[in-house]
Design a protein around this nucleic acid. Structure first.
Length: 576
RNA sequence: CGGGGCGUAGCGCAGCGGUAGCGCACUUGGUUUGGGACCAAGGGGUCGUGAGUUCAAAUCUCACCGCCCCGACCA
């Protein structure tokens, strides 16, 4: 493609609306433009990247035995009512009415639609397994769209759904999809790790999120570099650092004055005892009932874990008045000793410690030398806290790291949740009806593009992995006014195309060499070939990898070889 | 939905009661051409919308709309 004939509106200055690198660069490099908050137009370069990601996904899904279909974006309300999600999905579900006032939802995901399709066609176990996917536009009316394509209201998603005869068969499909996902992201050139994630209240199911590590990621994760364990913070388990005191206190607990000190930090300073020796007591309201959760002073309560353990549908931190009512003291002085009428949960990390400091259930007072079990009833121990840096890996014990990630895909074993609600059954060998066991598998296509940029950029622009780069080679004509140079560049363009490369040829007459270099860095094609009068005098062109600082001078006749060699290096980075 | 910020030329911004500005981009001509060239001449605006205050509003007041950030939320 000749730049002179193409629609690639690059801009020098970053539009004010963009905050994170991928968003800034997608606008600056002319990949997309915004129509309204959360809605974007993808321009030719952006669309090429999207198509490449889609092709990789298609290839791997088919390789793993899934078949592509296309379902409607607009879906009848009745289907959503069958599973209760017409209500449950809330405002995020975009709803529209047709001229007859019938309700529809613009699909945010397609479990209902695909399950309806399959139940209508599925008769016998002989038709299973069935694994269908589509790549289509999805709508989610996000409360706060942000970061460009990272959280938009309309986006491209690959969504796949599998139907199996039983749990074991579903597991097999699940792991096949899991492997396919690893290959997909690797082929896109992404460093991506599957992490265990919270599966909410759906019992017996499990799920993995595929995370691209990036500062700007919205999800917090914990990972072990030693053994590869990785989990979403909602789910991650850590081996706590040892307790401050491992010997039981010999003396009875005693009250100390701690006027105005209502945080662990402040009391810790006052008493000159480490936060690890504290019991932090938080009061929550779970489905209307107060519960107290105890964690060590250097730990934080993980609300998702508490909620799951209680089986509660709603969990909120208790307001100050409620804390007063339950503990008889203002916020900051709660403790387990003498606490009555409340269910008490304690994090496992408290189990091995002794001689704790805790709130005294009275204003400006704390207790020291507290022994759980001696001074208060033994609470319900479980994992109720979030992993912190320094915790040990639950698998290998090495230190865990915490970081942030962008969720580009998720695999989910659904079980019979939808097949039961929608009666998606098949006739088994035994002559009886059985519910299908389902899995669902999503990939945010547009988000994957953003994540790639998030992972690969520098001060000058994007560094595309070759597998998803809009073009593989960026050819720069540096002296367009010089007929010799122009001729050589034209020839090079033809040669590269003939050799099978996708070439973006900057043949513009009105742009200076410097301008073209800047554009090339911004656009980020993995390889560039520079044709200039300077080099031509010596009979050479310059070939450069975007990731390298300096170009390599190559004799005219050897340019194709050099490009092939460098392209080969780039492809290695995208090969599973 | 709560808190904060911003809407002035395509983009980035200044102006903050008295004639609408700057840089980049764009058009034309000329000189240039290896890291976002230079000179000259141009084109482009109901200052987000609507009310109000005032002799006079981009500027002050109110309402609405839009956009961005933090939070809540995210099968």
């Amino acid at each position: 493609m000749r730049v002179s004939k193409s629609f690639i509106p690059t801009v020098k200055e970053t539009p004010g609306e963009a905050e994170i690198p991928s968003h800034k660069l997608m606008l600056r490099s002319g990949l997309m433009r915004k129509v309204a908050s959360g809605f974007y137009e993808y321009l030719p370069l952006g669309q090429r990247v999207i198509l490449k990601v889609m092709q990789i996904i298609r290839g791997e899904m088919e390789r793993a035995g899934a078949q592509e279909v296309l379902m409607p974006i607009m879906t009848p309300a009745e289907l959503w009512q069958e599973t209760g999600r017409w209500q449950k999905y809330g405002k995020e579900l975009m709803r529209v009415k047709d001229r007859h006032e019938r309700d529809y939802a613009l699909g945010p995901t397609h479990e209902e639609v695909v399950t309806d399709l399959v139940r209508r066609e599925l008769k016998s176990y002989k038709q299973l397994p069935m694994n269908l996917f589509q790549i289509a536009t999805k709508f989610r009316d996000e409360v706060r769209p942000r970061f460009g394509v990272m959280r938009s209201r309309e986006f491209l998603m690959k969504d796949g759904y599998s139907f199996d005869v039983d749990d074991a068969a579903c597991d097999k499909t699940y792991w096949a999809m899991f492997e396919a996902y690893k290959r997909i992201f690797k082929r896109c050139g992404l460093l991506c790790s599957p992490v265990e994630a919270d599966s909410g209240l759906i019992g017996g199911s499990f799920t993995h999120e595929f995370m691209v590590l990036a500062e700007s990621g919205e999800a917090a994760i914990a990972l072990c570099e030693a053994c590869g364990y990785a989990a979403n913070m909602e789910k991650a388990v850590g081996v706590p650092t040892p307790p401050a005191v491992s010997q039981a206190a010999s003396e009875a607990y005693a009250s100390v004055e701690t006027p105005g000190k209502h945080t662990v930090e402040h009391v810790s300073e006052l008493l000159k005892l480490p936060p690890r020796q504290f019991i932090k007591t938080l009061v929550f309201i779970a489905d209307g009932k107060p519960v107290a959760v105890l964690v060590r002073g250097d730990h934080e309560v993980n609300e998702v874990k508490v909620q799951n353990a209680l089986g509660a549908t709603e969990l909120v931190l208790a307001p100050a008045e409620k804390v007063m009512e339950v503990t008889g003291a203002p916020v900051g002085f709660a403790g387990p000793v003498g606490l009555k009428g409340v269910k008490v949960l304690a994090d496992n990390a408290l189990k091995d410690g002794h001689d704790y400091v805790t709130g005294a259930l009275a204003k400006d007072k704390h207790l020291v030398h507290v022994e759980i079990g001696r001074d208060c009833p033994a609470p319900w121990y479980n994992d109720f806290r979030s992993v912190v840096t320094g915790d040990g890996c639950p698998k290998c014990g090495k230190p865990l790291k915490t970081g942030r990630g962008i969720e580009v895909g998720q695999t989910f074993k659904l079980g019979t949740k939808y097949s039961k609600a929608m009666k998606c059954v098949y006739l088994g060998e035994d002559g009886k009806d059985h519910e299908t066991v389902m899995g669902c598998y999503g990939i945010g296509v547009t988000r994957t593009v953003g994540a790639a940029i998030e992972q690969y950029n520098d001060a000058d622009g994007i560094l595309w992995p070759i597998s998803i780069a809009p073009y593989q080679v960026h050819l720069l004509l540096l002296n367009p006014a010089d007929p010799e140079v122009a001729k050589a560049a034209d020839q090079c363009y033809e040669d590269l195309k003939k050799a099978g490369y996708e070439v973006l040829y900057d043949d513009r007459l009105d742009a200076t060499a410097g301008f073209k270099f800047k554009d090339a860095d911004l656009l980020g094609m993995p390889l560039s070939v520079r044709v200039g009068a300077r080099g031509l005098k010596e009979g050479v062109l310059e070939v450069k990898r975007r990731r390298e600082k300096e170009p390599v001078k190559v004799p005219l006749a050897r340019v194709l070889d050099k490009v092939r060699e460098m392209a080969g290096e780039e492809w290695k980075l995208c090969t599973p």
